[in-house]
Design a protein around this nucleic acid. Structure first.
Length: 355
DNA sequence: GAGGCGTGGCT
DNA sequence: TAGCCAAGCCT
């Protein structure tokens, strides 16, 4: 069964920036970097970031020597920013404690920051050809179907992990692992799987029963709440914009923001919010409309107020940034929306260099 | 173990 | 449109 999948992979393998040519083993640094970026993130989104990182930091030693803020800037827009902080931390550990070489087995990899059970197995298999079972969303979907696992995720994870471990071949474990990813991405897709093209069709119990589109079963998700806030777009006499670094932990940790107050369950009282503005400005102007953004677990509705100060006062964790430099800052997408919203209303449409 | 943690593309 | 989904990790 595993051999059939590897045969299929030899004929249909996708060319991806982090993959080695057939028969060659990939650079562990490339494998690691791509696996971290690919966590909960699409291949299409990762491509440009992977190339940029590799061009800028060609080895793990280069990355270890980088400033964290430069890494955050380069990561801006990719999301799940704890990954970037752990990426940097991991590079430093590998450089300092492992002589610049990644551990070559699952257990050693698992000890590193940002590397969990899945990623440790994926790197062990792909970079070192170890017979490790890398179980991600693709594998869960494929195996749920092939073996008609009706128990909903995530409760079914242990069962699926056992199935996955039994299937990994001793030879060409790396190619087998990537074959499973390709199968999930191009054939055994979440919706409308292309069973006619599947190398495992003859083994698939879901297909035999015609229930492939009903699997994997998943537990119902909770409804997402909406939170409300006010963002302060402050400029000084020279047009510099006030940004502030967020605290290290939690949402958008370590990234820059257009200063905003707490995000609350009820729509913001503008007057009350102004009392907690990061600087004194007069008059504050409430811009029409709002910025909407959806995070993993809530919707955000942000009113933007604009103000100007004559002299740029020091602000805790704040920096005053020239407008043409905003694009290079470590601004997450939601904050780029805020900047764009403000510039559109203040300048009448210009300034699109924010990302 | 369940919830926090981004974003963009697709239907 | 609004929801679903993507090569998960950490606490």
């Amino acid at each position: 069964m595993s051999a059939k999948l590897v045969d299929w992979y030899d004929r249909h393998r996708r060319v991806l920036p982090w993959r080695s040519p057939p028969g060659e083993r990939a650079d562990p640094y490339h494998v690691w970097l791509s696996e971290i970026m690919l966590q909960q993130t699409t291949v299409a989104a990762v491509g440009p970031y992977f190339r940029d990182f590799l061009a800028r930091w060609p080895t793990v030693a280069h990355l270890a020597a980088a400033d964290l803020d430069d890494v955050l800037r380069a990561w801006a827009g990719l999301g799940y920013y704890a990954r970037a902080r752990n990426l940097h931390k991991c590079a430093r550990v590998v450089a300092a404690d492992h002589g610049g070489r990644f551990p070559d087995d699952e257990e050693g990899l698992r000890q590193l920051p940002g590397i969990g059970a899945y990623t440790a197995a994926a790197i062990a298999a792909i970079a070192f050809d170890r017979p490790a079972a890398a179980v991600d969303g693709n594998v869960e979907r494929v195996l749920s179907r092939v073996f008609t696992v009706w128990e909903p995720l995530p409760a079914s994870k242990p069962v699926i992990r056992d199935l996955a471990a039994r299937l990994v071949p001793d030879r060409r474990a790396g190619d087998y692992t990537q074959a499973l990813f390709d199968l999930g991405a191009t054939v055994c897709t979440p919706r409308k799987p292309r069973c006619m093209l599947c190398p495992w069709a003859e083994f698939c119990l879901a297909r035999a029963d015609g229930v492939q589109e009903q699997l994997p079963a998943k537990a119902a998700k909770a409804e997402q709440p909406t939170r409300y806030g006010v963002a302060f777009f402050v400029t000084d006499r020279d047009g510099n914009v006030l940004l502030r670094r967020r605290k290290e932990q939690g949402l958008l940790g370590g990234m820059m923001e257009v200063p905003s107050g707490d995000w609350t369950a009820a729509p913001a009282d503008i007057a009350a919010a102004l009392a907690r503005a990061p600087v004194g400005a007069a008059p504050w102007r409430t811009l029409p409309g709002a910025v909407r953004h959806t995070f993993t677990h809530f919707h955000l509705h942000l009113i933007v107020v604009a103000g100007r100060v004559d002299m740029a006062p020091p602000v805790p964790d704040g920096v005053w940034v020239p407008p043409d430099r905003l694009g290079a800052e470590a601004l997450p997408t939601v904050m780029r929306k805020v900047v764009r919203h403000a510039l559109v209303h203040l300048t009448g449409g210009g300034a699109s260099e924010v990302g």
